[in-house]
Simulated scan of single mutants.
Amino acid sequence: MSQRWRAVGVLAGTLFLVNVLARLVIKLGFDEDDSAADRVSWVMFLVIGLILAVMAFRWGRDRPVARWSTDLVVTVAVALALTVFVAPLLVGQNPFAGGAGLFFAQIWLYLAATAAGVLVGYLVLTALGRDHRSQQLKRYAQLKAAKPRRVVRR
């Protein structure tokens, strides 16, 4: 059980670190250039989505959907809270400095990037037929095909 939550914590920390690195790049390199800062933000969201797509692909192969999706929901919730409230403080900003619009836009963009990443990872896994459910059905079909039919006498 602790192994499960350790993986969730490491993944949440990784997502948080990606956000902090993007904020540092924006602060140190593109503080005055808004278009470059926007591009760095988009790259950050792309990286976060890609990380979650890979994790959905990996965890979806050997775990039921209910288990790995719960793990990813907890991961995204923790990483989102850290990203919205702690990451701005680490780079010397106030989390609410941009106003309510920017604060909630950040939340919606983060949730959209994570949902898209998880969806892409799981859809690719399902399309390849390597998800947990497909593997169960494949094993069941092989088991039923391997048993000889019983002869019924009357």
Rank of each mutant, 00 (worst) to 15 (best):
L21T: 13
L21Q: 03
L21N: 07
L21V: 15
A22H: 04
R23Y: 06
K27Q: 08
F30G: 12
E32F: 03
S35A: 15
S35K: 07
S35W: 10
A37C: 11
A37T: 09
D38W: 07
S41R: 05
W42G: 14
V43T: 01
M44D: 06
V47R: 03
G49E: 00
G49H: 03
V54M: 09
M55I: 14
A56R: 08
G60W: 02
R61F: 09
R67I: 13
W68K: 06
W68N: 09
S69C: 08
T70C: 05
T75A: 12
V76M: 05
V76H: 05
V76L: 02
A77P: 11
V78R: 01
A79N: 08
L82S: 01
T83E: 01
A87Y: 01
P88M: 05
P88W: 03
L90G: 02
G92P: 03
F96V: 10
G98T: 05
G98C: 06
A100Y: 00
F103S: 03
F103Y: 12
I107T: 01
Y110W: 08
A112D: 01
A113G: 08
T114W: 00
A116D: 01
G117Y: 04
G117C: 11
V118I: 15
V118Y: 01
V120T: 04
G121T: 08
Y122F: 14
L123R: 10
L123V: 15
T126D: 13
A127F: 09
A127G: 15
L128P: 04
G129E: 13
R130V: 14
D131A: 03
Q135T: 12
Q135S: 13
Q135L: 11
K138L: 13
R139E: 03
Q142V: 07
Q142M: 12
A146V: 08
A146G: 06
P148T: 14
R149M: 08
R149V: 06
R150W: 13
